[in-house]
């Protein structure tokens, strides 16, 4: 599903160059559950952004679902993101003026899905995440856990093949964090969605069937359970 070869990503900060990713080779098969751990600044987020096609590597090649996307232009990347990749952020990134329903609906709107089908799919997604009663509330009327569940509904509404999550529980209390993790793990277990989770919480990371550890922009260990 994901095939990375010699991926490098450098950031220039004044005189200094930070090698955020210093040569990553990685294969992730469809349906895998991978956690990425490592110390702060080791390149976890940068790697996830490259995988999410939000960031372009400075060197190396990337094949997504068998297609080399390294040279794709902006609009082509947007299309791959829209149709194949769901992303859950640490800070939720909901649009404040839109209701829960409308936030979940946005990807369908961008993809020109007909209104009736949109309503059906969004309601279904909200119901499965126990959010039906919150459908017409704005983000500021929701708890952190509810917000992250809305974000998950939005990330999965297009039925992506890959779900990426960068510290999805980083801003949540332990109870709602656990709930969120169970939801996305269930998407992997029940629907076969390829799941990649970045976390600094080793308890959470160890739940994954495959655990990557990054240090200084390199893969330090790659363990399977």
């Amino acid at each position: 599903m994901i095939h990375l070869e010699g991926i490098r990503r450098d950031f220039r900060l004044g005189e200094q160059t930070v090698h955020a990713l210093a040569g990553i080779d990685l294969d992730i098969a469809a349906g895998e559950y991978v956690s990425i751990m490592g110390p702060s600044g080791s390149g976890k987020s940068t790697l996830l952004n490259v995988v999410a096609l939000l960031d372009r590597p400075d060197a190396g090649s990337y094949a997504f679902d068998g297609v080399d996307v390294t040279a794709f232009d902006d609009d082509a990347l947007a299309r791959v993101r829209r149709e194949n990749i769901g992303f859950v952020f640490q800070f939720f990134h909901l649009i404040p003026r839109l209701t829960a329903f409308q936030n979940v609906e946005v990807p369908l709107v961008l993809a020109s899905v007909p209104v009736a089908e949109r309503r059906e799919r969004v309601n279904e997604a909200l119901a499965s995440l126990d959010l039906s009663s919150r459908a017409h509330h704005r983000p500021n009327e929701l708890s952190g856990g509810q917000r992250q569940r809305v974000a998950i509904a939005r990330a999965t509404i297009m039925r992506p093949k890959v779900l990426l999550a960068d510290e999805p529980t980083g801003n949540l209390d332990s109870v709602s964090g656990r709930q969120v993790i169970e939801i996305i793990e269930n998407l992997n277990a029940a629907n076969g969605v390829t799941l990649i989770v970045v976390t600094h919480d080793s308890a959470m990371g160890s739940r994954a069937s495959r655990q990557l550890r990054l240090v200084d922009g390199r893969i330090d260990s790659d363990q399977r359970r």
Binding site: D74, A78, R79, R82, E83, F87, H93, I95, L110, M158
Partner: peptide, 16 residues
């Protein structure tokens, strides 16, 4: 700006 980033992340094109 953050909303623009989010929209782009979930697949909005520049034209959108």
């Amino acid at each position: 700006t953050a909303e623009i980033g989010l929209l782009r992340a979930i697949g909005a094109r520049r034209a959108h």
